[in-house]
């Protein structure tokens, strides 16, 4: 379970303070896949980073008693001078996963070929994203944070990604951030709307979509 208790967070953009969350309390129960709808610029990514534990709220507490992934597409954690394999081994070590398993899994999933043993700095952005996605699947998290992904691979990769995501959904939970109603409808059984510093959680997706379409 992930619980937000009276959480506030604001950030400065172009000299103005913007509130992403204003004393928000919400519970993401275990066993549910939650979609978060929000227009561009409402702070969906910041909310993701807060849940990921990468950023601290200005006030309030975020309680997490489960292993939560980093926002899945995030590629900034790689050491550019190290190979994809070395980066994978490092992530496996800090989360105490079997390094051989993680290496094999990532090599198979990301399909980087010989690039897996080349420095990450030589990768294209799509290759980095595939490495990051493979790694987040390779670590056994209870909750996966999915930021809507731009196209990172070819049709074959996207199919593999969708299949892996579906398989993962059956044993782990998902928190999916999107401004596309369709993907949330397809993957989530609960949804929330982020708007103007408030997060409104609905037990069924249709109700959230109704509110979202009125914004």
């Amino acid at each position: 379970m992930i619980a937000l208790e009276q959480v506030s967070k604001r950030y400065r953009a172009r000299g103005e303070w913007r509130h992403v969350l204003r004393e928000v309390s919400a519970v993401f129960p275990t066993g549910r896949n939650v979609g978060i709808l929000g227009r561009n610029g409402t702070g969906k990514s910041t909310l993701m980073r807060l849940i990921a534990g990468a950023e601290r709220p200005d006030a309030g507490i975020i309680r997490r008693d489960v292993r939560v992934s980093w926002p899945m597409g995030f590629t900034g954690g790689f050491q550019g001078s190290l190979t994809g394999r070395d980066n994978a081994r490092f992530v496996a070590r800090i989360y105490r996963e079997e390094t051989v398993f993680v290496e094999d899994y990532v090599a198979r999933f990301a399909e980087l070929g010989p690039y897996f043993d080349m420095p990450v700095s030589t990768y294209s952005s799509g290759m980095r994203a595939r490495l990051a996605l493979g790694l987040s699947f390779a670590v056994d998290f209870d909750v996966y944070l999915v930021d809507e992904l731009p196209g990172v691979g070819d049709a074959r990769f996207n199919k593999r990604y969708a299949e892996e995501m579906a398989a993962r959904r059956s044993r782990s939970d998902l928190i999916l951030v999107s401004h596309q109603v369709a993907s949330i409808k397809a993957q989530c059984d609960m949804a929330a709307v982020l708007h103007g510093g408030t997060l409104t959680l609905f037990d069924d997706v249709a109700a959230a979509i109704r509110l979202y379409s009125k914004l």
Binding site: G53, R56, D58, A59, I61, I62, D65, V66
Partner: peptide, 12 residues
């Protein structure tokens, strides 16, 4: 207030 703000970790 800021000092009480936190994200709890399942790891430690």
């Amino acid at each position: 207030m800021a000092s009480s703000a936190r994200v709890t970790q399942p790891y430690r």
